[in-house]
Nucleic acid binder design. Structure first.
Lengths: 310, 310
DNA sequence: CCTTGTGGTGGAAGCGCTTCCACGGGTGGG
DNA sequence: CCCACCCGTGGAAGCGCTTCCACCACAAGG
């Protein structure tokens, strides 16, 4: 029984007789053998382990319900394939961080969450086929994202149908392509209805949502609906409005995006539109693990969730 | 210039002349050299990279605001030391998973989050000095946790001071030592006040909080306060109560634990008690990276945050 | 019976790094 | 002036695995 044979059966590659297979399996379980991931990565020069790289201004971005959902879903599919998950913060101002990550081996694939354009541009060729992006919808890299254009249109139409005529929008970070898609859809929808566009930049955080709502009510006091890209911002806005004595949904309707768990927990319940992140993350994980270069841009449908706030 | 010399200056270990140091540094930056983590781990037989292992029934536990805070804080201190973070789910029924993790090298330290007793017992000796636990408060392994005994006492006393006399508690999972500490403190506090103990088991989730609140109001309709270990459960309870037409805090006061971001966002705002997880996680990360075996059990103070719900 | 194939096997090289060790050329003291 | 000493250096081994390749034994065909 040589190391070569053992390696063949344990890694499942190469020929091995039934007898050898059984002997190795028996020995492995008896000795509680665990392959040395580093050695394997070194020899194979292509680690297993999928890296989730989250873009953002501070490491604090990692603490976000959206990211939490991505992580849980990724960890689940990763565990099923017996690979690990590592977590990385991709500073907005250091796009080459991704290249370092890739060179630093041990990783078999990368899932980018909300990366900047420069970060996408800096994707090293060595990562081809083992990288996917979610939360952006870009063509530079295989992407999986929610169809937030259609979703935005539907939300705005719902608000219009409810009699709202001055609908403000709290956007996502300007450096995200998905922000542009949503903003475009928003513009088209309000233009079509002949109602004025009111845009305030956001960053997906609750704090920014609060500030943005205050800003909106100051600049345009007659606003009767606020749509925030991201439930966190929507909930922040909702809180700020109610603290200011504004009745929701009486005076102002509030709608969010993503349908995070807290959207249902808030009072009034937050009207929002789903984001099937779990599916998306699972698909992205599978794609990078299988080195599929397919499907450069896939959009997942979002469905409107009506609660009390709008 | 040999590989040996380069290795010495890059890893900062061993002697090297000033000239050599500079030449290596220059070459490294020019070539965008990134050390191969796997090779290094193999040679050193002690990887860098800190593993966060979260105990729980399903991978879904990874998606929890508490865990999110731990991850963000860990990633921050890890990034400052140029080490990676990997994420693991520690199934409740597979305590040896931790041993596999340890053998699977590449990791320099482990932070256990809410591990079970069997998992703690299964900690391999090879991990001595590079492991720490948070969220449990155990002596089996260096632990950093919030002082939830004192915090619980203070919450109950606050509820009593507010005139509440039938205070129910939604606990944490029974397999967590911290649940016992809090339950003990709760018992002592209500006994002292001569009010009846009302315990319902929880698991930190919002769904369980809702169910528990319903259960409480069914079994003990005259309950006038609910204290949940974990804001998620408290918010779930709060939602269920209000849906049942119960006025909060008029009829029933609700208090939580942890002071997650949503505690402030909810209406009424959730009265809770802080959990300095960020500090705790940072300290735990530093401890494992520095291989400190010190401080077997450190408790961090919690402060009461009064909002509208209690 | 010998040839040509086949599936299974072990030897050995090598993945990129660290670290032991032996060695050379400086310095200071005798 | 020579020796002992020490700092800085490069050669080489080895971390645990994979994988190429040569090899053997056997089965099937001529």
């Amino acid at each position: 029984m040589s190391a070569a044979t053992a390696s063949r059966v344990l890694s499942g590659r190469g020929p091995a007789s039934k007898a050898a297979r059984q002997r190795v399996a028996a020995a492995a379980t008896e000795l509680h053998y665990v392959p040395h991931a580093a050695a394997r990565a070194l020899a194979t020069r292509s680690g297993t382990r999928i890296a989730v790289a989250v873009g953002g201004q501070t490491p604090h971005t990692l603490n976000d319900p959206y990211v939490g959902r991505v992580l849980a879903a990724t960890a689940k599919t990763a565990a099923a394939r017996e690979v690990g998950v590592s977590l990385h913060w991709l500073p907005l101002h250091a796009p080459d961080e991704l290249a370092r990550l890739a060179e630093n081996r041990g990783i078999g694939g990368v899932i980018l969450v909300n990366p900047t354009k420069p970060a996408l541009a800096a994707v090293p060729k060595s990562l081809r086929g083992r990288i996917a992006a979610i939360g952006i919808g870009s063509r530079d890299v295989p992407s999986f994202d929610v169809d937030n254009g259609t979703a935005t249109t539907r939300v705005v139409q719902h608000l219009l149908a409810g009699g709202r005529r001055r609908i403000a929008m709290i956007t996502g970070p300007p450096w995200l392509p998905c922000t542009h898609r949503a903003v475009t859809a928003y513009h088209r929808a309000v233009d079509q209805a002949g109602t004025p566009p009111r845009l305030v930049p956001g960053d997906f955080t609750a704090a920014r949502g609060e500030a943005a709502a205050t800003e909106i009510m100051t600049r345009w006091p007659d606003t009767d609906a606020v749509f925030a890209l991201g439930d966190l911002s929507a909930l922040g806005a909702l809180g700020a409005l109610r603290s200011a004595g504004v009745d929701v949904p009486g005076d102002v309707a509030v709608a969010g995006f993503d349908d995070i768990a807290f959207a249902a927990l808030s009072r009034p319940g937050l009207t929002t539109t789903t984001n099937p992140v779990e599916d998306i993350a699972a698909r992205a994980a599978t794609a990078v693990l299988d080195r599929r270069r397919s499907s450069s841009l896939t959009f997942y449908p979002s469905t409107l969730v009506l609660r009390e706030s709008a």
